[in-house]
Write a protein that binds this DNA or RNA. Sequence first.
DNA 1: TCTTGACCTAAAGTTAGGTTTAGAAATTAC
DNA 2: GTAATTTCTAAACCTAACTTTAGGTCAAGA
Lengths: 151, 151
Amino acid sequence: MAVSEGLSIGALARRTGLAVSAIRYYEAQGLISPWRNPGGQRRYQRADIRRLSFVMIAQQFGLTLPEIRTVLSGLPGNRTPTPQDWKSISKDLRARLDQRIDTLTRLRDDLDGCIGCGCLSLPKCALYNPDDRAQARGSGPRYLMGDAPEG
Amino acid sequence: MAVSEGLSIGALARRTGLAVSAIRYYEAQGLISPWRNPGGQRRYQRADIRRLSFVMIAQQFGLTLPEIRTVLSGLPGNRTPTPQDWKSISKDLRARLDQRIDTLTRLRDDLDGCIGCGCLSLPKCALYNPDDRAQARGSGPRYLMGDAPEG
DNA sequence: TCTTGACCTAAAGTTAGGTTTAGAAATTAC
DNA sequence: GTAATTTCTAAACCTAACTTTAGGTCAAGA
């Protein structure tokens, strides 16, 4: 049971609090890449605990798994990430978070304008600005119209 | 074509930018309640344009449809909502938005701590605090563990 | 009148992010 | 050496928020 044998998926699950099924799913989404032991079972590096922690944090911040994959691609592929490496992609994460906060703050200010006039009439009302991609689900156009003067 | 005949679903779709299918879906979710004309087609009040605009704004703010239904229940059922009525539920919305912004801001500050030490080690790292229900998807426990000293 | 376009319902399909299930093989524990 | 865990894959299932499809009806205009 040498250290070099790596962690089993169950051990990794216990260390991260994720379900085993979620870890396999993340692998399918390209977020983590274990190797296999002679019997075909997945084996993980200790650094993968940190990697999954990062995934969970980024999810809290509202990033999608493809976005997280992109951020993680900032880590070196050929060696175990150093604290500096983590620091670097964390800054990337922070920048995205800042943008989300700005967007929400702007939305709030716009809403305040609407509360002020009590009418919810647009185009003051936020949705005209198209930047909050994180919230955009489904498809099709999403614009907003008020009870404009002319029908 | 008297005013009292109301808007067809297509007209409402054009006025709000929503798809016809989405409007029917919102009805199924209890967000809007049209009446029917003699031929069985849906007819809407002009005030419903505003109602759907509100739904769209609330979605931008990250509320789920059940949550939006709850907020909308603050509107009077027996008469057309007045500007004051809208103002009142908009304040409700603003309060929820404020909370989301606060949560994200706190998460950002926590992340800053992690960037500072470069290690992403917990429990500093945000996910321990369980309040951002809006982001919680899926199920199962989600806690976070670092590369703690003892295995 | 007749024909087009809008509308109807019900059911199935879609995406994200997973979980559950089934049946088989590998590992670990005794 | 055998029993109990874990793990494996593949496929089906789940929720939210819709869209699409299929087959039929209603309404408006020339």
